[in-house]
Write a protein that binds this DNA or RNA. Structure first.
Lengths: 161, 161
DNA sequence: CCCCCCTTGTTGAAGTCTCAATCTTCTTAG
DNA sequence: CTAAGAAGATTGAGACTTCAACAAGGGGGG
């Protein structure tokens, strides 16, 4: 094992600022959704993914892939969402192992109610605070990050669809 | 309530890339620490904060402030860290309500073992993938973000110490 | 055709986080 | 000095995530 390459003073400063900002930002979004829509952010993302799918329906595995979530987590989450009536499970016609998750009308309505607050939060806390050049830079930086992460593969595919 | 200002096509693209990158990146760090040091990332951050404090000791509330964590969460976390022997609780001499958390030698050793892997991950997945200009830009963007977040106040103070 | 293995999805247990309630101690207006 | 309110910290319950184990269906080589 080679010597650890520690961070320079400047890198350390950037690193701490970055991780703090990300933490605070994500925290803000999560609380906003939880307050306004009474669901965790990850559930919101599931509803969004379903709402964009044909027939508002996706295989569990596709849904897990799209959200880069483990099957287990998704299974628990969909169980919960089914309890509150926002998602319903269907048998997969082509593969008896499979299960389909479908967004219900109630789920779609809940999503429509939650969306404006969420978008406003993203706008106010992110885009309104950055210059156009910074927005471009952020996009490029994010791509660079994603390219270096194995976990990013599924996400990259989802983005390029 | 005024009309929702939705995201432009470009903003949407940047937004999805950004949130995916952050998710994948944070996920990667968390798993790395969990695998190598057998503790969640938040516990690692607690140990770091303690290790940098005088006498490796901090008031619970200061520790919560530094990590922007709720008192409750910190209390649970320190209880857990105490169980494994990495932190010890002391009575606060000046305030009978207070409690001090102190990093034990075992905790410090665990931190020293975990640090190289963590720094290497940050280096490889973040700094090695960005140009010097991007690093600067990322610092500025992070500051801008932090400035807009109420939750960021405590973090900003911690950074400016 | 059949057996072995891979994939899909679920389950239960254990760990962590949030929220609200609580207890104690400090602070300060009166 | 005292009473009321603020601040520090803990606790327990409920919710979410992870991990490992499992059940059950598909699919290909012999």
């Amino acid at each position: 094992m080679t010597e650890t390459r520690w961070l320079t003073e400047q890198e350390q400063e950037v690193w701490r600022t970055f991780i703090s900002a990300v933490d605070a930002f994500v925290d803000h979004l999560e609380r906003q959704i939880q307050r306004d829509a009474n669901m965790p952010y990850t559930y919101y993302e599931i509803l969004v993914a379903l709402s964009e799918a044909p027939d508002r329906t996706l295989r569990m595995s596709e849904l897990a892939g799209a959200r880069s979530s483990s099957r287990s987590r998704l299974s628990h989450a969909v169980a919960r969402l089914e309890e509150v009536g926002w998602v319903r499970r269907l048998a997969c016609p082509t593969d008896k192992r499979g299960a389909l998750a479908q967004l219900t009308d109630e789920g779609f309505a809940a999503l429509q109610e939650a969306a404006p607050g969420h978008v406003t939060a993203v706008r106010e806390k992110l885009f309104d605070r950055l210059t156009p050049e910074q927005v471009v830079a952020l996009g490029e930086i994010s791509h660079a990050l994603l390219d270096g992460l194995p976990e990013g593969a599924a996400r990259r595919q989802a983005l390029n669809r």
